[in-house]
Design a protein around this nucleic acid. Structure first.
Length: 405
DNA sequence: TTGTATGATTATGG
DNA sequence: CCATAATCATACAA
């Protein structure tokens, strides 16, 4: 959004408003510029202390003055040109009288103008935008905003609180948006003030020639402020859009799956199968696993792995292992062998042995929560074969109460 | 192109 | 809040 355009818009409409005023004065004042007639109700007051002998000439006189005033208004007070005429006007003997007349007219017309647009209910959309910006941490206080945004993002993503990489990325972008928003807002504020002062000066200047009540200046200021706040609303709107886009991209990125590296999977599997009887790593264990996975992957292409990802992995692994132990048997044996090697530093012969029928071979089942999850050793040995024939799952025997036999 | 593997999300329960 | 189960959506192999 171009700032200068906004100002231009504002200026335009302001000019239009002033134009309107001039027109209103012209039409309501009921004075034809030729000075031929003065309409009924709005008749000019009789000149003080004078009889009407030279009425025609005076009417002409007044008409001239009015004409000059109108011209000044219409010409927006071109300084150099109008100075002399203005001076002349100000010193004119009829000036005070005319001024009071104009004031009176103004008083009457001003009421209807003011009455027409007094109501100014807080725009519901603006409030919505404000609320959203506040909630997203764009409009809030300085550093609290960042954490508020993080909290909002965490809440939106289901509470996975600590995937720092993507989070910091998100936060950085949000901060950027935030900064832009604030600088723009400040610019608008400043421009609004400048413009208001300018207009007020202008009006004050004009008020020496034509009657402008403080109420009217107030009204004008109100108009300007409304204009600027509508511009601000555009800014807020586009900021909201930016935040939404950022967030959806953030969530999309999270949703977009990237497989873990070979090493990471290996580490996780190692832990899983070596703790098969209780595959629930503690918080610390998860942290350690996440760190280990991230380290081994750091020189590669993959991203780092977070604690919540480790949790996801174990959650998926448990359920999938449980659902089809047969499918994981080979893998289980492999990792069992691996851990055996790692733990005991055994000789190659020992490895062969353990692969065949070591006690560490995970056919002993594990405890899932409260449910006992046991597999018959006979069945276990035949699973691969079973799969080859059935091509499907070896019928996990769910009982009516949901337990697995 | 299709089926499977897999990481992430959602719904539900304690 | 954590676990399971179901489901989504993509990566990847065949």
């Amino acid at each position: 959004m171009s700032f200068s355009i906004c100002v231009a818009q504002c200026t335009d409409s302001l000019a239009a408003t002033m134009d309107d005023q001039a027109r209103i004065m012209q039409s309501i004042g009921g004075v034809s510029l030729a000075g031929h007639s003065v309409q009924g109700g709005m008749a000019l007051p009789p000149p003080h202390g004078h009889d009407g002998t030279d009425g025609d000439g005076r009417k002409q006189d007044i008409g001239d003055i009015l004409h000059q005033i109108m011209t000044i208004t219409d010409q927006s007070l071109d300084e150099a040109q109008a100075k002399n005429r203005k001076h002349g006007l100000n010193c004119h003997r009829m000036k005070p009288a005319l001024f009071s007349v104009l004031c009176e007219i103004k008083e009457k017309t001003g009421l209807s103008i003011r009455g027409a647009q007094e109501e100014d209910p807080p725009d519901p959309q603006l409030m919505r935008l404000d609320n959203m910006l506040l909630a997203e941490g764009v409009a809030g206080p300085e550093k609290g905003g960042g954490s508020a945004a993080a909290a909002a993002a965490a809440a939106a993503s289901g509470g996975a609180g600590d995937n720092s990489i993507e989070h910091s990325d998100y936060r950085a972008k949000l901060t950027q948006i935030r900064q832009i928003y604030h600088t723009e807002l400040e610019k608008y504020e400043q421009a609004c003030n400048e413009f208001t002062t300018h207009v007020m000066n202008l009006l004050r200047e004009q008020s020496r020639t034509r009657p402008i009540s403080p109420k009217e200046i107030e009204r004008m200021v109100g108009i300007i402020h409304r204009k600027f706040s509508s511009i601000q609303m555009q800014l807020k709107q586009s900021t909201c859009e930016a935040v939404m886009i950022l967030r959806s991209r953030f969530l999309d990125a999270r949703r977009k799956r990237r497989n873990f590296s070979k090493q990471a999977t290996e580490i996780l599997n190692e832990y899983f199968y070596s703790h098969l009887s209780n595959p629930y790593p503690s918080e610390e264990a998860k942290e350690e696993l996440a760190k280990k996975c991230s380290i081994t992957v750091s020189q590669g292409v993959g991203s780092t792995i977070t604690v919540s990802q480790v949790s996801n992995w174990f959650g998926n692994k448990r359920i999938r292992y449980k659902k089809n132990i047969g499918k994981f048997q080979e893998e289980a044996n492999l990792y069992a062998a691996k851990t055996a090697v790692n733990a005991a530093h055994a000789a190659a012969a020992a490895v062969q042995n353990s692969q065949a029928n070591s006690p560490t071979t995970p056919n002993s089942g594990f405890q899932m929560k409260d449910e006992e999850f046991q597999l018959d050793s006979a069945e276990s040995k035949n699973t691969l074969l079973t799969n080859m024939f059935t091509g499907g799952y070896p019928a996990p025997c769910y009982q009516s109460d949901g337990r697995i036999q």
